[in-house]
Computed example of a mutant assay.
Amino acid sequence: MAETGPFRSPASAVQISARLLCWSLAAAMITAAVDASLGPRAGWWGVAWLLPWWLFGATALAWTVLRAREKTDPPTPPGCARSDWEQAA
Score class of each variant (00 low, 15 high):
residue 84 D to H: 01
residue 22 C to Q: 07
residue 52 P to E: 05
residue 41 R to E: 15
residue 22 C to T: 02
residue 58 A to Y: 06
residue 46 G to E: 07
residue 71 K to Y: 04
residue 22 C to N: 03
residue 77 P to M: 07
residue 39 G to W: 04
residue 4 T to K: 10
residue 14 V to C: 02
residue 5 G to Y: 01
residue 26 A to Q: 03
residue 26 A to H: 06
residue 34 V to Y: 14
residue 59 T to L: 15
residue 20 L to T: 00
residue 34 V to C: 12
residue 74 P to R: 12
residue 17 S to P: 02
residue 51 L to P: 00
residue 17 S to M: 12
residue 18 A to D: 05
residue 38 L to K: 14
residue 85 W to M: 02
residue 43 G to C: 13
residue 52 P to N: 06
residue 47 V to E: 07
residue 84 D to G: 00
residue 66 L to S: 04
residue 41 R to P: 00
residue 71 K to Q: 10
residue 41 R to Q: 13
residue 28 A to R: 13
residue 70 E to K: 11
residue 65 V to W: 11
residue 21 L to G: 01
residue 66 L to A: 08
residue 70 E to Q: 15
residue 35 D to E: 15
residue 59 T to R: 06
residue 87 Q to A: 13
residue 41 R to A: 15
residue 20 L to Y: 00
residue 14 V to T: 04
residue 72 T to R: 15
residue 44 W to T: 12
residue 47 V to S: 04
residue 56 F to N: 02
residue 17 S to H: 05
residue 79 G to A: 07
residue 67 R to Y: 13
residue 77 P to W: 04
residue 27 A to H: 10
residue 8 R to M: 13
residue 76 T to G: 02
residue 16 I to L: 14
residue 53 W to H: 14
residue 45 W to S: 08
residue 61 L to V: 12
residue 24 S to P: 01
residue 6 P to S: 01
residue 21 L to W: 03
residue 9 S to M: 00
residue 78 P to Y: 10
residue 13 A to Q: 03
residue 36 A to H: 05
residue 56 F to G: 02
residue 38 L to G: 03
residue 9 S to A: 13
residue 31 T to M: 14
residue 26 A to Y: 06
residue 49 W to D: 00
residue 57 G to K: 06
residue 12 S to V: 08
residue 12 S to L: 09
residue 61 L to A: 15
residue 47 V to G: 05
residue 21 L to I: 00
residue 83 S to V: 09
residue 84 D to E: 10
